[in-house]
Design a protein around this nucleic acid. Structure first.
Lengths: 343, 343
DNA sequence: TTGAAAGCGCTACCAA
DNA sequence: TTGGTAGCGCTTTCAA
């Protein structure tokens, strides 16, 4: 199956010049309608598709968006979030005429080297960054090279001078909703099972719980009592839940920073109410109520931010439903609470 | 940062012709060593990297491997397997000088259309197919177009005339090992919690259990009694385990076709031994013994099969450790049993 | 062993 | 509104 239909074949078939064909495809307004139709018919008949490589040589655009596929996490449960995001990204990108190119890198330094390599060889038009952390060198690097990019995740601790487009999910809003839900169900001793302080994501999620309890009248001292910090993983969650239950005034409910910790808390038994974060398959499997990130919309927004920068047009479906905050290039989406047996 | 170092820049810097530079890079044996070194130094100094687009125009090779990122499964737990495979693929491909290009498709028909589209535009050098099923039209299509591809998954019910390279994991060997392990632990009533007959993967896994029990002296009638079939998902697993436990002669152990079913069985309580399949994060989280697929090696083998077809060289690391069966283009790898608390 | 020329398929820039 | 020309950066002839 020789798929080598070139623009010249189309031109011959339609009885016009190569140029006209190119115009019909790239700047239709320049071509008479009659001619357009003839050309389009020829395109159809021949099954012509513009070669991306040839186009790239002229335009310098590869129609490629590079994204990193992350190695398995310690716990692995959260690979899920990234995987679903990547799926959404692939889908949204395709709609906008882009494809997703994958790469891996062991650490930030290796990733910068990969940026350089990719940029020299495949020349992706943009990058999508995930798992941003404090002091992350990647945005600054891309900014300096003037490479378009967007991040899934707010810039944590980045000087305002370094502004760039990002999309994120409002974790605090998620835990706030979870806490409010437990409050409404009559709980008064609602603990928070979180990661050690210092991670942007973890601290943000803790904050939503804290401010909701505070608004409900909790004193700082009580908050401190209810706030438990531990590394991620079900075993840690189980131990933490036990500790919180063995106190003088035990908790009756737990808001957790991750499904892993929540799963552990669930396993600690004692029938307390537990709410997790991320709505991973585990949550579904064990009936765990969990905060769900709108990953598919996060992906759509990322692509839309990118195409705006790339194509100059701000087209793209800009769904307003779950939107919480939007400065144009900084988008914070609201998560939702998926209710199941655990709370 | 103008990254536009071309071959001409290198030639000028090294004081040779463009051609010589190309030769140094593509056919070094044609160039005197002294010249080579000079050129290589210039390449280094200038940070030259050959443009993939330009190379593709000449050679027709895109150095791209296309793979589909699957939508979330019903249950979601198994997205994990694919995600880890994809990660390994990206890594192995990079080592071999290829990048992974992602696409999605809702069903087989849409996927064939995507093949066609991709082939016309980005022209990937090869495809990697996953989740093969009976009557899968994709291999035949690619075979007919003479597009190189490899599948992760054996061809189920495909006429031998349609031979193509594949890599798979010996599921039967996995469940056989699991069954033997339970036998050695003293269990005599070992049930199998599987999917309804008709899925290649599911039937294969059932077979490993059946043959091991048979070898241990079980009668067909007993096997039938111990063989329970249900759809995937923890709730189904829980119900099934209950049913098997409420029988006259209850099972004392369960080999499961998936971690989802195993998780359900675990939740049914009663402390029976349970072994799952795929060693997903859930298994790790709840201490479930599970059969683990060597996904990273599957990926390596896929790439190695591909590069053999593409580059003509059979290079690539061909690790022999986990290898069980290898005809050169058909590779069946052995899974391993990860022992945890559940059995 | 090295260099010159051609051309992959496309689009930007002109001129008609 | 249409068509001609040039050239993106590379590699594959062929000639020196």
């Amino acid at each position: 199956m020789a798929d080598k239909v070139t623009i010249a074949d189309v031109a011959r078939h339609a009885g016009v010049s190569r140029q006209t064909v190119s115009n019909v495809l790239n700047a239709p307004e320049l071509v008479r309608e009659h001619t357009q139709r003839r050309v389009l018919e020829a395109v159809q008949a021949l099954g012509y598709r513009a070669s991306q490589a040839a186009r790239q040589m002229r335009t310098g655009r590869s129609q490629l968006i590079a994204a990193r596929i992350e190695p398995a996490q310690d716990d692995g449960i959260n690979g899920f979030v990234f995987d679903r995001f990547l799926h959404g990204l692939t889908e949204s990108a395709a709609l906008a005429g882009y494809r997703v190119l994958l790469y891996t890198a062991a650490d930030h330094e290796a990733e910068l080297a990969t940026f350089d390599d990719l940029l020299g060889v495949y020349v992706p038009d943009a990058f999508v960054l995930t798992s941003l952390d404090y002091g992350d060198p990647r945005p600054a690097w891309l900014l300096e090279q003037r490479i378009p990019f967007v991040t899934f995740g707010r810039p944590w601790g980045v000087p305002p001078a370094q502004r760039y487009p990002w999309v994120d999910v409002d974790g605090a809003a998620g835990t706030a909703a979870a806490t409010r839900y437990l409050l409404d169900a009559g709980h008064r001793r609602i603990g928070f099972l979180g990661w050690p302080a210092g991670s942007g994501v973890g601290d943000d999620r803790r904050e939503g719980w804290a401010r909701t309890l505070t608004a409900a009248g909790a004193e700082p001292a009580e908050l401190a009592e209810l706030d438990y910090r531990t590394d991620d993983g079900a075993p840690h969650g189980e131990a933490a839940a036990r500790a919180l239950l063995d106190r003088d005034r035990p908790v009756t409910a737990l808001v957790c920073v991750s499904d892993s910790l929540a799963l552990g808390a669930l396993q600690a038994g004692r029938g307390i109410a537990v709410i997790g974060f991320d709505d991973t398959p585990v949550a579904r499997a064990v009936g765990l109520t969990s905060v769900s990130q709108p990953l598919s919309e996060v992906a759509t927004r990322c692509v839309s931010l990118l195409t705006r920068a790339l194509d100059g047009n701000g087209a793209g479906a800009r769904a307003r439903e779950t939107q919480a905050y939007d400065t144009g290039t900084e988008v914070l989406l609201r998560p939702s609470l998926v209710r199941r047996r655990s709370a």
